[in-house]
Design a binder for these strands. Structure first.
Length: 220
DNA sequence: GCGACAG
DNA sequence: ATCTTGTCGC
């Protein structure tokens, strides 16, 4: 029984059991080739339905090259720690529609910085095989000291004595982002990519492009 | 029992 | 995330 092919029809308790079964499948080292395209994933809930949007940008110039979006009926509530069970069904279908597959995906949410080390970035990576990074706007778990005020400043995020992520200042004077490894990448490399994807704003260009499609007014 | 809690 | 206007700051 391959844990990667679990059903989405689960109770919260069942979902947590799936996370524990999948956690050992996460690849912690860098296992991806040259990065020519990076993608941003974001999910919105217009009219209560679940809309996943993916934007593929060329790397490193970050010029848009492709995008896809899918809207499905919402089938799982928001439960802290179980975000992926609410968003991934739509995200995976949007990924399949892409013409230009990305080499690396930046997810809106945590990767390993999760109670069971199975945030949405890890979950998507393990299920699809894509290399992924978790880029969250706020903390789910872990403790940290405030990083310096300048862009590039960072501080380790710990869960007890275990390093689970990095609190990163992507723009001077703005709230930091919570970066963690998803799948097939290590934390240091993940932080490096996030900085290269944030040439102008707090959030990565990938995330901004996807966000615009997911919660945008255009329904195409 | 009392907080904390990605999006 | 979503419901919503004006407002403070660079």
């Amino acid at each position: 029984m391959d844990p990667k092919r679990h059903s989405w029809d689960l109770t919260p308790a069942g979902a947590r059991a799936v996370q524990e079964a999948l956690a050992p499948e996460v690849v912690t080292e860098n296992r991806f080739g040259s990065v020519r395209h990076v993608a941003g994933v974001d999910v919105g809930f217009p009219e209560g339905r679940t809309r996943a949007a993916i934007a593929v940008l060329r790397y490193p110039d970050l010029e848009p090259v492709d995008s896809a979006q899918v809207t499905l009926d919402t089938s799982f509530p928001y439960v802290p720690g179980l975000l992926s069970f609410r968003e991934l069904p739509a995200v995976e279908r949007a990924l399949e529609k892409l013409r230009e597959k990305p080499d690396l995906i930046l997810c809106d949410g945590q990767g390993r910085a999760h109670p069971r080390r199975m945030g949405i970035a890890c979950h998507l990576g393990v299920r699809t095989g894509y290399a992924t990074i978790g880029v969250a706007k706020s903390r789910l778990c872990g403790t940290f000291e405030a990083p310096g005020r300048e862009r590039g400043c960072r501080a380790p995020l710990y869960d007890g004595r275990e390093r689970i992520g990095t609190v990163l200042r992507t723009r001077t004077g703005v709230k930091p982002l919570f970066i963690s490894a998803g799948h097939r990448i290590d934390l240091e490399t993940a932080v490096d990519f996030v900085l290269r994807c944030t040439p102008r704003y707090r959030l990565p260009e990938t995330t901004r492009a996807a966000h615009r499609l997911a919660s945008g007014l255009q329904s195409v």
